[in-house]
Design a protein around this nucleic acid. Structure first.
Length: 425
RNA sequence: GGAGGACUAGGAUAAUGGUAAUCCAGCGGUCUUGAAAACCGCCGGCCUUACGGCCUUGGGGGUUCGAAUCCCUCGUCCUCCGCCA
């Protein structure tokens, strides 16, 4: 959510920014609603001031055992008008709020401008794509032949988009999660969180999934709870409605969670295999920092996520998303894309974003500056570190051998029961 | 799931239906070689150039001229009962 003051001060630039983000909003109606709101408040406060002073008079009269019926009668009328004005004010504020929460965050100055994802900018790459002296298979063929990914049985017990990992595939998945968590906690200094996988509406509003993306989430109506689409939601909301000490910042959390996404409306895109599924595993990195440091922290966050890809020896590239491709709440975002030789494609395995104070305003997460000044909103950031479904795909396809086995990268072996490769059963 | 109790600022505590008091912590200052102690000021939010005004007792409603206080409702925590991996 943006500061209404910021919108009042720069209506044109906010309007332009929302158009650049391809979700234009009507700024004029927001300004006029806000004017009505302010007028109503003004008149209401004038009457409330009157009521407060006259109430004191009534108290004084009663104390002196004098008659107060006339004043009380007058104030009854004033109170009725206040009630009416309060009602109007609430009505205007509700409508204004509905508009405000749909204004997207403004892209940061360093975010490239563009018309679509085609204008995203590749800013770095690591390693070369793996070379093969045979035609590399895709992960579906590999996973099925090795009997470590079972698509048909997943479809049977749950539906399309719920593949089952079996045997060494399940072990590999678990190894990845462990490797990610160990790296970020021990090497990068993040505190591990094991969050609830179901959250309430307030949490989803805080991180910006609600109200815009309600249809993308699994919903348990009986309890009004949602399955989390990412650990970002519970972890960032940990400090909702709190005032932190400056000395606590930066806060760095990492969390494993299963992630649930309905992917409504995305049929036809990446439908094949394990690339776009309804449930996958992810280790998420979340930071809460002082505003002045958030863009430095974004670079550090990206380095932490990139470390995993380097350690796994995967070819990848870093993409700076252009404003048109930026998510609703983000001001700047880097995607990390791992190379999948079987697909012949790059797969998005991490998004590292700075939300500035956009989420913090929605969640009311502030910190008290060391000098005792009044609380300021923190800046929030998050990034995948990483998502296993697609990393598993990149690994299988990158480390496959001519004989159809898959070598296990060195760094995963401590969690792989001594396996150096996954072979046919 | 049932019964009872509680919720006041960062923390802790007070207020016969008359408009939120106090303590601690924190910040600034006086004093000091420095620190501590002591003392003074600040110490929830919003509006206002200012003076000042309005709001704030877990959330939302209601009664009343006036609600932290009375009523309804929801939430959270605690105690007990029931159920349970």
């Amino acid at each position: 959510m943006l500061d209404i003051q910021r919108i009042r001060d720069n209506p044109e630039s906010i309007k332009k920014a929302s158009e650049n983000k391809k979700s234009p909003v009507d700024i004029d109606i927001i300004i006029s609603l806000d004017n009505r709101r302010r007028d109503t408040i003004k008149e209401g406060e004038r009457l409330k001031s009157l009521r407060n002073t006259r109430s004191q008079d009534i108290a004084a009269l009663k104390k002196e055992k004098k008659d107060a019926t006339q004043v009380i009668a007058d104030m009854k009328e004033v109170s009725d008008r206040i009630r009416k004005l309060d009602g109007q004010q609430k009505e205007v504020e509700d409508i204004l709020h509905e508009h405000l929460i749909r204004v997207p965050n403004v892209a940061h100055g360093s975010t490239p401008h563009g018309e679509s994802e085609k204008n995203n900018v590749v800013i770095a790459a690591w390693e070369k794509p793996a070379a093969f002296d045979f035609k590399p298979k895709d992960h579906i063929e590999l996973g099925t032949a090795l009997d470590i990914i079972d698509f048909p049985r997943g479809a049977k017990i749950s539906g399309a988009g719920f593949p089952v990992l079996k045997g060494d595939g399940a072990l590999l998945e678990r190894a990845l999660i462990n490797f990610f968590l160990e790296t970020h906690t021990r090497r990068h200094g993040y505190r591990e969180i094991f969050p609830p996988f179901l959250v309430n509406r307030a949490s989803l509003f805080g991180t910006g999934q609600l109200p815009k993306s309600e249809e993308q989430m699994y919903f348990i109506g009986e309890d009004d709870l949602f399955c989390i689409p990412t650990a970002e939601v519970p972890v960032t909301n940990l400090h909702r409605d709190e005032i932190l000490d400056q000395a606590q910042l930066p806060i760095k959390y990492c969390a494993y969670s299963a992630c649930f996404r309905r992917e409504a409306g995305s049929y036809g895109k990446d439908t094949k295999g394990y690339l776009r599924v309804h449930q996958f595993n992810k280790v998420e990195l979340v930071k809460m920092v002082q505003p002045e440091t958030s863009y430095d922290e974004l670079e550090l966050l990206r380095v932490d996520a990139e470390y995993i890809l380097k350690a796994l020896g995967l070819h990848y590239r870093v993409v700076s998303l252009c404003d048109a491709d930026l998510s609703f709440a983000a001001a700047k975002c880097y995607d990390l894309e791992a190379w999948a030789p079987g697909e012949g494609n790059y797969l998005e395995v991490s998004s590292c974003s700075n939300f500035e104070d956009f989420q913090a305003r929605r969640m009311n997460i502030r910190y008290r500056p060391a000098n005792g000044d009044k609380p300021r909103f923190v800046h929030t950031l998050n990034g995948s570190g990483l998502a296993t479904a697609r990393i598993l795909v990149a690994l299988l396809e990158t480390y496959q051998t001519a004989k159809g086995a898959v070598r296990v990268p060195e760094v995963l072996r401590p969690w792989m029961q001594g396996l150096t490769k996954i072979g046919p059963r």
